[in-house]
């Protein structure tokens, strides 16, 4: 990390730790907006930070680590796609409807923190992306299983602008980074707990079964972090269709092992509302489905590999990084 990245990391770490999983947009967003963090991936001449995908990874990972209940990740991706430095954007997962000329009628769903947003970027039904003003339609609010807002916007004959880029894939990459961070936080919480908690006269950490379980968890968390890094580096080189698919699949696998072992070593206390394991594990379970679950990304990744045949497998894999 260079000095600028170090400063960015420390700033995001402090800010996200302060607001955490109990933040609300009303109470927490002004602090994010004040440092213009949502312009992280926006070019400097467009009023942004001009940050790289590796820097975005750092911020997204910390957002996951602190389970922050604010749409930081979505606002960064939306601003980068819409090339806007004004207002708060967010990104819809699914677009149903049709575009005629520069008007759109239909429904955008899976919108994180649609309430209070200024604009929504969404996948265009025919490729690329569109952006719609959030006030252009009717918002139905909902929540994912972690309690994060996931809303639906219904619009009739609303003006839209077309954008380049793939919001669905970029948000999948963002979720991979958040998963990597949340897994590290879950692991840290688990390690701390087993070192504190005593049973049979000694800390749980001294039992070999517990040690081996958390060692497995550490490997999974490392794999998710490495996958996130690989996908972010690929984005910095241009595009990352293979890498984002592979990274989401790998990170999703790590969630199964990680959350199961975290809850197992915590025992019943980890299952309570009071103890702060669930803001992490419930997010992980929700994020595993968001912006493409295993079925979606398996088809995206596996289809071309099978079509190309075995002789192209290794050469294709190594060509990704040169």
């Amino acid at each position: 990390m260079n000095e600028q990245q170090q400063m960015l990391s420390e700033m995001a770490d402090g800010l996200f730790a302060e607001h955490g999983p109990t933040a609300t947009v009303e109470s927490g967003w002004p602090a994010i907006a004040e440092v213009a963090l949502d312009g992280l991936l926006l070019a400097e001449d467009q009023g942004g930070f001009g940050g790289s995908w590796e820097e975005a990874l750092t911020v997204f990972r910390l957002a996951g680590y602190h389970a922050i209940a604010l749409p930081v990740v979505e606002a960064i991706v939306a601003a980068a796609l819409a090339r806007r430095s004004d207002g708060r954007g967010t990104v819809a997962a699914v677009t149903e409807g049709r575009i005629v000329g520069d008007r759109f009628s239909g429904t955008l769903s899976g919108i994180p923190w649609g309430g209070g947003a200024d604009y929504v970027v969404a996948p265009a039904p025919d490729g690329g992306a569109i952006v719609v003003a959030a006030q252009a339609g009717t918002l139905d609010t909902g929540r994912n299983i972690a309690g994060e807002p996931r809303d639906r916007l219904t619009v009739q004959d609303a003006p839209v602008a077309r954008l380049e880029g793939n919001p669905f894939a970029l948000m999948a990459l963002a979720r991979v980074a958040q998963i990597a961070g949340a897994l590290d936080a879950t692991l840290a919480l688990s390690v701390g707990y087993v070192n504190e908690r005593k049973q049979f006269g000694r800390p749980l950490a001294k039992f070999q079964a517990v040690q081996q379980a958390l060692a497995s968890f550490a490997c999974e968390a490392a794999a998710a972090n490495c996958a996130a890094m690989g996908a972010a580096q690929a984005m910095s080189r241009g595009s990352a269709p293979f890498e984002i698919a592979a990274a989401k699949l790998r990170a999703n696998r790590a969630i199964g092992t990680g959350t199961a072992l975290a809850h197992q070593v915590h025992g019943a206390i980890g299952f309570t509302e009071e103890y702060q394991l669930h803001p992490l594990t419930r997010r992980l379970w929700a994020w595993r489905s968001e912006f493409g679950g295993d079925a979606y990304w398996s088809a995206q990744l596996g289809g071309p590999i099978v079509a190309a045949g075995s002789s192209a497998f290794w050469s294709g894999l190594t060509a990704l990084t040169g």
């Binding site: 690989g230 990274a247 088809a299 596996g302 590999i305």
Partner: peptide, 18 residues
């Protein structure tokens, strides 16, 4: 089978990076 190929490819890619 496509899903299994994808799973194995994703793991191979990740381990190669690591």
């Amino acid at each position: 089978l496509t899903a299994l190929v994808a799973r194995l490819a994703a793991e191979t890619w990740t381990l190669r990076l690591m």
